[in-house]
Design a protein around this nucleic acid. Structure first.
Lengths: 216, 216
DNA sequence: GTCTATACTGGGATAGAC
DNA sequence: GTCTATCCCAGTATAGAC
């Protein structure tokens, strides 16, 4: 995804389009559809505004193109079949780990999704990979309960709550950095720690424990 | 907060200002500072755009006023002293429960905070109540570990992860509704279920269990 | 395919009547 | 204190040269 094509000074339609899409993804993530400025996108891309309208007829069309590309590239989960082979707790850990990795490496998509949610009534979300993730997690949780690995819980609600834990750290970065004034939240070390703590919390949160009190 | 003063047709400066603030909070929550339209705020309020500039000199000043009011009203946590009296697990449950209640009853504030994070680099977040919530939770987690109630964990990271679980359901509502096509996510019943499931996940996630494997 | 220059519009802000 | 009318800039979109 994030490969810039600025170096070629010769005319290259393909490269220009990719370059515009990259800059647009960034801008839309930051500001949402309405507040995004085509001028900023053009400036970051290195081409002029006119080019944006040449390739993508309007800001809306460009937005749609960004979403389309993002959905096709985001969240490469382990295949359903592979997950079914694993014990439920290992399957869940795999999914959560994949999710955390995706979110850490490209925060633009979750940010765009959020803007979608509160501005555009989640119109595009149906197409997105996140619903798949939720369904997958929910199914694993159901299986884990029936196999006795997990405590009694409501699978869809718990899947949503897990997803919340996974995305919040990166989504709220600019706010949360005040909570860690002396650390770099995006450093390799911190991201790894976040991954580890999130997984620990989630796994402990769903697993059945011999003498633990059941929640119902 | 959400009390409208439209019914008085006589001139009432106080009521007009409150009315503007209410509408503005809504609009800023939906669109963020930049994309928010003063025209929309005025329309929703029932007064004209000019009034907004009469009372608040600019859109920015209005935004600041909305934030100031929100911070002073949001998240009424139990007093520090009361929490210290309780066993750590009960204290944590109290805080999480309070947080879930605040978020469910007014989603505007978390939404504004989110926009702050990704648009304005979290400038205002330092003032907000959320950092207090995080510190409070973190302290409780530390105490719980030292008293042997909680498993070994990183307190700040875990506090952030818990907060994520608490806010995500309401923040992502418009997206997540596609995941529950047959339910009303804002119904009393669903909100209660979310509260219950979130608390169950969090408490199970942090508590020490006799035979559970420690995460470190 | 890429640029410069410009037409057009939405919306922030203000002047002035009532 | 509240309204109407208007100014004017920022920003979308396009025409036309190269």
């Amino acid at each position: 995804m994030v490969y810039s094509a600025k170096e070629s000074k010769t005319r290259d339609a393909e490269a220009t389009q990719v370059s515009i899409l990259d800059a647009a993804e960034e801008e839309f993530a930051r500001h949402g559809l309405k507040a995004a400025r085509t001028e900023t996108i053009a400036a970051r891309t290195g081409v002029t505004k006119a080019m944006i309208y040449y390739y993508f007829q309007s800001k809306e069309k460009l937005y749609q193109a960004v979403l389309d590309r993002a959905f096709s590239e985001y969240v490469h989960l382990p295949k359903q079949l592979d997950l079914d082979q694993l014990p439920s707790d290992e399957a869940l850990e795999q999914v959560v780990r994949g999710l955390l990795a995706s979110v850490s490496c490209n925060q633009n998509i979750p940010q765009i999704m959020f803007h979608e949610a509160i501005q555009n009534h989640g119109e595009y979300y149906k197409q997105a990979g996140f619903l798949t993730v939720l369904s997958t997690m929910s199914a694993i949780l159901e299986r884990g309960m029936s196999e006795g690995d997990f405590r009694p819980l409501d699978a869809p609600h718990t899947a949503v709550n897990i997803l919340g834990t996974c995305v919040f750290y990166c989504l709220g970065y600019e706010n949360l950095k005040h909570f860690w004034p002396d650390k770099q939240m995006h450093s390799q070390k911190m991201l790894e720690q976040h991954t580890q703590e999130a997984i620990a919390l989630v796994m402990a949160g769903v697993q059945r424990h011999e003498n633990g009190e059941m929640s119902k």
